[in-house]
Design a protein around this nucleic acid. Structure first.
Lengths: 341, 341
DNA sequence: TTGTAGGCGTTATCAG
DNA sequence: CTGATAACGCCTACAA
């Protein structure tokens, strides 16, 4: 493989000039640049990124830590991240953690090892280094694109889960529902708690009472939504609507209702959260909260670029909050018909 | 940041010994290793991967080229790839092409630039270099994990789309369907053609006639499945079952049928392909072909590791074919009731 | 079992 | 505008 020296020789210039021609062409005479470009094309030269990285002390990679990529939700984030990374000549290194903290910490160590310049967290776990920053040596560039307790001082991008949940409960209440159930995510995650408290806020605003018997926990999966719906139905409490903490669980709930012979929305209104594209084609199409997933990823990557450019000490610790919106489809309607016990 | 020299000094050995202790501990006296480990822990040393890579001429990265990651299907492949990459201390670099050939070619160039050691293709596009290999300089390590024309001599992993499609048509025929429609993928893709020809094979085996009026084209998206179903319904041809080239389109078709008031499976049987988890929770749950997506990714990465270890000249050009299987759920049943025009 | 020393291919500094 | 040269941090013969 040709290297910069070969190009220099063939073009009749020094390696320094070749390097400049490539990175700061304005400093090189056009005629010289042309000679160099010819040589590059002739020899099929491709700059060695490893050598450049070693010299410049950066890899132009950013790690994206996710529990799993096999998830329409996560992958939309990643898509957004990659979009702006690519536009800035950076690459995305996938870091799948499977929810394991040790694995996550190893990925963080890759930053010190120069495999990556920073990391974007799409994880509920937090790397150890955030809780106890090293005395000497500086913090690796980290950006959070998921929910973390508010006391963490990481640049972050998120949506207002609290208000969004309240919004959807408000929508159901406006339709006339008095007894609105909830299917939550795993409550050890901050995001789930946030959406649950938004549900409560929504009830409060509609002057409806909170009833623990109307809350079932899931884990964001289809199956857990199905199961939670079954528990709710079997629980004996009356209700005419259910707000699910994400679309997957809502789709699972829909499936359970269908299996039990409940008509949606006639006998039961169902709402989701996330606006997965599958929701729009469900039977019936799912009312949900749209969140700008790809844009969240893009914003996170932009935050990362900011951090990477920061003069080390000044950390503005920005927080970006992206807008959500209610999407009303056919899975929610005014309550009517028989009530079931 | 501490470097290998610092460790050597603190541990009272030479850099060579430190290097060996890290990569081939068996060549170093245990007592020495221990001293080195203490120093490493003390100084919080992390080997510089860029420097090591420069020296060894590899990055330990593998590029995964995909048109988009925002797709349950693709992301399952990637998950599999990452699984085995991680187990072999390699990293996955995401290469999103958006279906653009130039972008793909740029990713290939990254291999020459040592940003990655090889590339796994999850793309319908083929890099230029495959068609016209460079005279001098050797081929970058490439593995195909999607469909390519059979004449391409790349190591590849795939499933038998042809037989799988025939299998599902056979299933419908066995149920008693005589008029079986098809919703295909985009026919410029080899995979779509393969599935279509499998559909024809299935008809042939069941001694059913192929009727062009029963074939509608889609592009693998939910919406296109919906639209294709509508066209089929409006086309006027009679049929009692439809085999879709993937689950997304099948789900879209289901949605169209529901909107038109068709009962599934009573009035129309619908089958998909891929076994997305959303299919199992559709109304009704979708009959489909299960394909081992994650395993395909894993197999592709193993193939890549093989290629990377190959003594340059010997390219076995292996092909791995993974098994599929029919999953019968409630969206298919024997034809009955009224027939519609 | 350990040490010495020569690159790997770039970039950046400093002179010219 | 261009050239010479010293790093960047590590690995690996080769020697001891």
């Amino acid at each position: 493989m040709a290297n910069i020296k070969d190009i220099a020789r063939v073009a009749g210039v020094s390696v320094a000039t070749v390097s400049r021609a490539l990175s700061q062409p304005s400093l090189v005479r056009p005629a010289t640049i042309e000679r160099i470009e010819v040589a590059i094309a002739d020899l099929n030269y491709e700059p060695n990124h490893l050598a450049a990285g070693l010299r410049r002390q950066r890899s132009d990679n950013v790690i994206v830590a996710v529990p799993s990529i096999y998830n329409p939700f996560t992958s939309a984030f990643v898509e957004g991240i990659e979009n702006v990374a690519r536009a800035h000549k950076m690459r995305v290194l996938l870091g799948i953690t499977e929810g394991d903290s040790d694995t996550l910490n190893k990925y963080v160590a890759m930053i010190a090892g120069k495999q990556a310049d920073g990391m974007i967290l799409l994880e509920r776990n937090l790397p150890d280094i955030v809780r106890k920053p090293p005395a000497k040596g500086k913090m690796p560039p980290l950006v959070a694109a998921c929910e973390y307790p508010p006391d963490i001082t990481l640049p972050r991008v998120r949506i207002d889960n609290h208000e969004a949940s309240a919004l959807i409960v408000g929508h159901l209440a406006e339709l006339g529902h008095q007894r609105i159930a909830a299917i939550t995510g795993p409550l050890d995650q901050f995001m789930s708690k946030d959406r649950l408290s938004g549900y409560k806020l929504g009830l409060l605003r509609a002057r409806l009472e909170y009833d623990e018997a109307l809350v079932a926990n899931g884990d964001f999966s289809l199956q857990s939504g199905f199961d939670a719906m079954v528990r709710l139905l079997d629980g004996g409490a009356e209700f005419t609507a259910v707000a699910c903490a994400n679309d997957e669980m809502a789709l699972g709930a829909l499936s359970a209702l269908q299996q039990r012979g409940f008509g949606v929305p006639d006998e039961m209104s169902v709402a989701g959260f996330d606006d997965l594209r599958f929701g729009a084609f469900a039977s019936p199409p799912l009312t949900t909260i749209h969140i700008p997933t790809v844009e969240i990823g893009e914003a996170a990557m932009r935050l990362m670029l900011d951090v990477l450019l920061q003069p080390d000490d000044v950390q503005p610790s920005r927080e970006v909050i992206l807008p959500h919106r209610l999407i009303v489809r056919q899975s929610t309607a005014a309550p009517r018909r028989r009530k079931r016990k």
